[in-house]
Nucleic acid binder design. Structure first.
Lengths: 198, 198
DNA sequence: TGTATTTTCCTAGAGGTCCTAGGATAAGGA
DNA sequence: TCCTTATCCTAGGACCTCTAGGAAAATACA
């Protein structure tokens, strides 16, 4: 019998597609094997366990997201860059909910280092070049942006904004306005304040 | 044989405890039955399915979180209230990761309405009384706060802040400082700007 | 108190998932 | 051509979800 041509790459891609269709938690080795026309036991020649499947989807999603982010950032700066980058996150989560969910799974340090996670923080720091922030404020700002983006998308996807007539799109725009203002008026650290003239 | 005394309340409580121990995704009907000393089939007299278990943990967590939030808010206002409330979220997620994860599961509209979800947004609005915001800015601000709190906690729990020496505690404090400033300098809506003097 | 009803728990079992062990066969290289 | 390796198979154990139908405890009621 001819072989099915299963590879880890095709597996990850199929798992990502499946995750977008039925949700990450419903991505099973069995269903994936079914889609490839092989027995589920056969997939264990390519992956160690079901968890690795999710990790591979996570890595895939982080890379796709980073690519989109980089494209969005090209030729932009300041608030323009901030908004474009933020929309990449939100749009990606809308188009690929399963992949986006996967991107939040905890990765072991080694996998995390090999992933596009670093590119994400680097891009955020690039955005912050439009605002004058030095360490450790820059790191704190990266974390604020990451938190706000992910938190908003996460709550929106979970239906947290559906109990109120105010549109999510409008809130999103205002949240980005506010973050822009916040970055431009970044507060002075309590450690430094009061020592300005000494 | 004497009965085990299983009730939906005790089940939800036990499921919440189990979730904190082994993670929400590992909360199974079987394990729960084992802890109550009954057969797994017996639990289906109390709950419809495994999903209901998670929903009940979610409702429980939302209520506990709302209680803690209310206690933290008592006698506080302005930034003091903001920080106290935010810390309730973060501390709860630290103490009860499984419960916190459950609080993010999507609830059907009916369950959501009967849950403490409304109390949460009401408390956020109470905090915003310390800042002068009118609708729809108030709703947008509630969403920004919810996003930032949840996003930070979520990323922190997923290990997203472990690849950098900057401590999460310090960033958290600065993020709250920034949110406080942002709320006090809430940007004028683009719809209104330019019409100030007309 | 005795009886009827309801609730809780049981056994049995179907069907799904994960994963391992060990064997067969296709593909590619010496 | 033969050997090696990778891919796929069958078989099966362990665990999970959930249903059906029955027994027994608790409760309600006469």
């Amino acid at each position: 019998m001819a072989r099915a041509g299963v590879t880890v790459e095709r597996l990850a891609e199929a798992a990502a597609e499946l995750a977008d269709e039925v949700g990450l938690e419903n991505v099973t080795v069995s269903e994936l094997a079914r889609r490839f026309g092989v027995k589920d036991a056969s997939l264990y020649s390519h992956i160690r366990n079901a968890h690795e499947l999710r990790v591979r989807v996570a890595v895939l999603a982080l890379a796709e997201l980073a690519d989109r982010g980089a494209a969005a950032l090209a030729g932009r700066a300041g608030k323009d860059a901030l908004v474009a980058f933020a929309n990449v996150y939100r749009d990606y989560a809308g188009e690929h909910p399963g992949r986006y969910a996967a991107a939040q799974v905890e990765l072991d340090p080694e996998t995390a280092r090999a992933s596009a996670a670093r590119r994400h923080s680097d891009m955020m720091r690039a955005i912050l070049r439009g605002y004058s922030l030095v360490e450790p404020d820059q790191t704190d700002a990266v974390r604020l942006l990451g938190s706000a983006f992910h938190g908003f998308v996460s709550l929106e996807r979970a239906g947290g904004f559906r109990h109120h007539p105010r549109g999510a799109d409008e809130s999103w725009g205002r949240v980005l306005d506010t973050l822009d203002v916040a970055l431009r008026n970044w507060p002075v650290s309590a450690d430094d304040s009061g020592h300005d003239d000494n």
